[in-house]
Design a binder for these strands. Structure first.
Lengths: 242, 242
DNA sequence: CGTTGAGTTGACCATCGTCAACAGGAGTGG
DNA sequence: CCACTCCTGTTGACGATGGTCAACTCAACG
């Protein structure tokens, strides 16, 4: 398993740094648009920052003073309803960028699930940089497009599908995302809790738990500490696509 | 009721034109970024086009040869599952832009619900124009951001909410969108069928129908031919936000 | 005047949510 | 080192919400 996606291997390694040129997520992220000189400009306005597990990065509605480029760890992005129900609208992984919209206030809340490191940019400096670098803006636009497509995938997953299909989709979806930063293995790390998964899929924690145990009894998956191993990949993929 | 949102009033008026300067949706749309000369450039590559009700504009996966700016009418945007289930991921209204991502293939299918007029741009010419006009790109980016936020709103609506809450949200959501092009009235035109609403909300046609009749029995709404009238706006808003 | 398609309503049933109990591991304090 | 709590996850019993199947109405259209 790749170091970027293995929670155990990551634990000791989640260190902040602003050495862009040797950054692990450089080619995945918005920064990939920049040449060496431009990268230096970006590095000049970047601050490296670290969050412990369960720390809150920002809250929905707050002034967006900064943008973040995640270099390691996992975050949950969510909104709350008036009555306290929580909907998780995504998990941010290494390479993901928070604040793509350059909006003046945050559209959702974000907190660290495990230890997280990120590059932090002040919104005003970053916005100024996009004024001067059209291809950075272009890159930003294509990243936003990817986000949009991810949101639409989630809509597909939530609309009128069974719990089993949702959970299978979640596993495959996470696997594809890990594949961007590492290998596409059959081992899927789950740094998030069952409650997080439930709030992401519009299910309850009990249904998630039951569905996973049922899939495990079927020998479609195996439940390992810290993650899931896909045993019958084909079957899970079929459920996910159905 | 505003002409742009009244299906009856629109029926005879849905005419194609490329007179940008007098375009009704000019200030709502991506074009608003352009000054007079630039608008002329855009007009030069625009083609006006008309679709009858039920015509397909494009299919998911097809080569995206063109982008469209809707000037009147309503479209449904959707994706199909392998088993034939359909998920509607949005309705396009006047002022909406299809193809914001500038991607080479369509991420979803689109067809006309009622009569639709649009400005059509070849993707290559439009992309070329964005190369020369950074503020057009900027405008494109902010439109994509709005789309993203709309998709996240839909995720909020689909995750673990009751049928009543979903339907109420749909009505309020549609009302807000109509408000962008016209007035925020209590009368909400529903050009789309019950099946369209069901496929948008992840419900069945029967549940949508039952829920609407229940809300009508409560005197929260009134079901008129061609639309819904909000009687107890407060109550519907409460349900929608819950 | 028959056909077709959209919408409504009813009866029944499955899935998933709710409530509750329990297991096991991590952390804490005596 | 053990007992205790706390937290997460699992499992069971039960019930409600919403899906399924079917019948029916009504308007549009030939």
């Amino acid at each position: 398993m790749d170091a970027l996606t293995n929670p155990r291997a990551m634990a000791g390694q989640c260190r902040a740094t602003t050495d862009c040129e040797h950054c692990r997520v450089r080619f995945l992220s918005v920064c990939a648009a920049l040449d060496r000189d431009e990268l230096a400009e970006l590095e000049a306005i970047a601050q490296s920052i670290h969050f412990d597990a369960k720390e809150t990065i920002f809250l929905e509605g707050e002034d967006a003073r900064a943008l973040y480029n995640v270099t390691c760890g996992t975050l949950r992005l969510y909104r709350l309803f008036d009555d306290g129900r929580r909907q998780i609208i995504g998990f941010a992984l290494p390479g993901d960028f928070l604040g793509l919209d350059l909006a003046s206030s945050h559209a959702f809340s974000a907190d660290a699930i495990d230890a997280v490191s990120a590059c932090r940019f002040s919104r005003t400096s970053f916005t100024a940089l996009t004024e001067r670098k059209p291809h950075l803006l272009r890159r930003l636009h294509s990243a936003t497009t990817r986000e949009l497509s991810a949101a639409q995938d989630q809509v597909m997953a939530l609309g009128r599908r069974s719990a089993e299909e949702k959970v299978a989709w979640f596993l495959i979806h996470l696997r594809e995302r890990y594949a961007r930063v590492g290998d596409r293995t059959t081992m899927i790390a789950l740094p998030m809790s069952r409650l997080d998964i439930a709030d992401f899929l519009g299910l309850t924690i009990e249904t998630v738990s039951r569905t996973l145990t049922r899939l495990a009894r079927d020998e479609s998956i195996a439940i390992d500490p810290g993650g899931i191993r896909l045993v019958d990949v084909r079957r899970i993929e079929q459920l996910a696509a159905a």
